[in-house]
């Protein structure tokens, strides 16, 4: 059993401001059901004073995710947007008399939702939402990873996982996370030199080269990742830039397989073989 503070228990057992504001002035959704936690935040904002009049949440997740969401809504009601924009996840954790370290990502989710809602209201684009996805299991960008490392002085991959979930799934991104940690902490990089991606080479690939490289990338980069979750992939056909694949095992009936296909297989092939590649799936 987690050692939750009385305040976390209170906000979990008696969550405040559950629900959804009708026709909200700002709305943000972060996380998703596959990742194990998700939060939808809706705000009522007074245009004249730029003050948050009401905040409601809906959360899928564990006790600390529900408590963090409840805490955010309690904290920001009555604040101006400028005040709310300054809230950090530590403020949320402090409000709750602390969270276990492995649960800090719940407070980060609250902060992310708030930032996103405010940005949406102001028609701004968020840097953290921009970035490149590093952790594909949980859809975490390099920007967010960098942010939590900087804000909390993190030095290990495990800590990064606690704060933003990155690296907590298949582990395939651990090297990349380590690189970001080293970069932020201005240490010399320890990882092996990364080979120049063929995509960076200027000469177009011949058909034979393309086929070989696709097979190689699927074998080395994609299949181990899918097998880790009981899935597999089969190349059905390669017709110039069109790669037809079938997902097998667990992947064949996974609701997120479309996501898997687009975000991982296609991204990997584009990155490592040829930017024009597009992937199609057959049963």
């Amino acid at each position: 059993m987690w050692d939750y503070s009385e305040k976390v228990k209170d906000h979990f057992l008696h969550p405040r401001n559950v629900g959804e504001i009708e026709n909200p002035d700002a709305v943000a959704e972060v996380g998703n059901i596959t990742c194990g936690d998700a939060l939808k935040l809706t705000l009522r904002i007074d245009k004249a004073t730029q003050r948050i009049l009401d905040a409601r949440f809906q959360t899928f997740g564990c006790a600390s995710a529900i408590a963090s969401s409840s805490a955010v809504t309690e904290m920001i009601k009555g604040m101006t947007l400028d005040q709310a924009a300054k809230l950090s996840n530590d403020d949320i954790a402090d409000f709750l008399q602390g969270l276990p370290e492995a649960k800090m990502h719940c407070s980060v989710m609250g902060m992310e939702a708030l930032e996103k809602a405010i940005a949406a209201y102001r028609h701004e684009t968020l840097a953290v939402a921009e970035g490149t996805v590093v952790c594909r299991c949980f859809g975490v960008t390099d920007q967010l990873i960098e942010k939590v490392i900087r804000e909390h002085g993190l030095t290990t991959i495990e800590q990064v996982t606690h704060y933003c979930k990155a690296g907590g799934g298949c582990g395939g991104c651990h090297k990349e996370i380590q690189k970001i940690i080293d970069h932020v902490n201005a240490k010399p990089a320890t990882g092996k030199a990364v080979a120049a991606s063929p995509a960076a080479q200027k000469r177009p690939l011949t058909n034979l080269e393309r086929v070989k490289r696709i097979e190689e990338v699927v074998e080395r980069e994609i299949r181990p990742w899918l097998r880790n979750d009981g899935g597999d992939i089969e190349i059905i056909d390669i017709d110039r830039a069109k790669v037809t694949v079938a997902l097998r095992g667990t992947c064949s009936n996974c609701r997120v397989s479309q996501f898997t296909l687009k975000s991982v297989v296609e991204q990997k092939l584009r990155e490592l073989v040829d930017e024009t590649i597009h992937v199609e799936q057959v049963a």
Partner: peptide
């Protein structure tokens, strides 16, 4: 078999091996 009860972020390896959707 939820992830959060163990402190890991992924649900039970048994349910995943069975192809039970994460949801």
């Amino acid at each position: 078999g939820s992830a959060c009860t163990t402190g890991s972020l992924e649900p039970s390896h048994v349910l995943r091996a069975m192809g039970v959707p994460f949801t």
